[in-house]
């Protein structure tokens, strides 16, 4: 299968290792991977800020960019939810409605794609660490992914998965919310990060790099030893270097 990568803007600029790990895992599974360099940002910041006119332009650009791609896979529950759930809503009653629906159907979040579309749970990764999982809200509530990432993690050799009672609590990122209402956002990450730190895990893993930015940023500031790690990075651990 030829997979077209959907790399969120801040992964591109601030967390390229997540994109590289995504490529590595998808290739390990025997697929062709392409990256269409015209892509930048899905427009979610504008959409969430109520600037739907602006966001619509981004959506229409994305439709054009991914036209003809067999499947589109992205390592972010939030950005994928933008394409899968919010583009069709943004573009309904426009000439682009049908295409938006159609793109939504062939776009998948990374763990969703591997487990639901490819039917694979064991990539062959090895990581001798204790990890705990953070359910990103968009992955969990917009895309209804809960078991899929856990299935993948359980298959990793040497990995011990510890659940926290706050796994479903929002990390408080929420895009611009995190800087428009920084005190509320911080209070939320205190609840989340505190619970994560108490698990004693080495890593907090999530399918959402934006949550990890928030959680990781707070954990480092507070000097907590637990580190953020994207699920693609976990699954790329212990794979042969050049697949």
């Amino acid at each position: 299968m030829r997979i077209s990568l959907f790399i969120p803007c801040f992964v591109d600029q601030l967390a390229p290792q997540v994109g590289l790990a995504t490529v590595k895992v998808l290739k390990k599974l025997g697929h062709d991977v392409e990256f269409r360099a015209e892509q930048t940002c899905c427009g979610q910041p504008s959409y969430n800020s109520g600037q739907w006119e602006v966001a619509r332009e981004g959506a229409i650009r994305a439709l054009k960019i991914f036209r003809g791609a067999e499947v589109v896979v992205g390592p972010s529950g939030s950005c994928v939810a933008m394409i899968k759930k919010f583009y069709p809503d943004l573009l309904k009653d426009t000439p682009h409605a049908a295409e938006a629906k159609e793109l939504a159907q062939r776009t998948f979040e990374f763990s969703e794609f591997i487990v639901r579309q490819l039917g694979v749970t064991d990539i062959g990764a090895t990581l001798n660490k204790k990890v705990t999982y953070h359910d990103g809200c968009h992955a969990m509530r917009e895309l209804r992914l809960k078991e899929e990432p856990r299935q993948l993690l359980r298959a990793v050799r040497g990995l011990e998965l510890i659940e926290t009672e706050e796994s479903e609590s929002c990390c408080g990122f929420g895009g611009l919310f995190s800087v428009k209402f920084p005190m509320i956002s911080t209070a939320m990450v205190q609840v989340k990060g505190g619970a994560l730190a108490r698990t004693g895990a080495d890593y907090v893993v999530s399918s959402d790099p934006s949550c990890l930015l928030q959680i990781g940023g707070w954990l480092t500031r507070e000097g907590k030893p637990i580190r953020p790690m994207h699920i693609a990075e976990v699954l790329a651990e212990g794979l042969p270097a050049n697949v």
Binding site: V11, L14, A15, Q17, L20, A37, T220
Partner: peptide, 28 residues
């Protein structure tokens, strides 16, 4: 916005190269 973030949270050090650069530079 940046200072509101930094008041309570760190930002990881920025990587030297973006994903798109690394993609371009690699065999892909």
């Amino acid at each position: 916005y940046l200072s509101a973030w930094l008041k309570t949270r760190d930002l990881p050090p920025a990587p030297a190269q973006s994903f798109r650069q690394q993609w371009k530079d690699s065999s892909h």
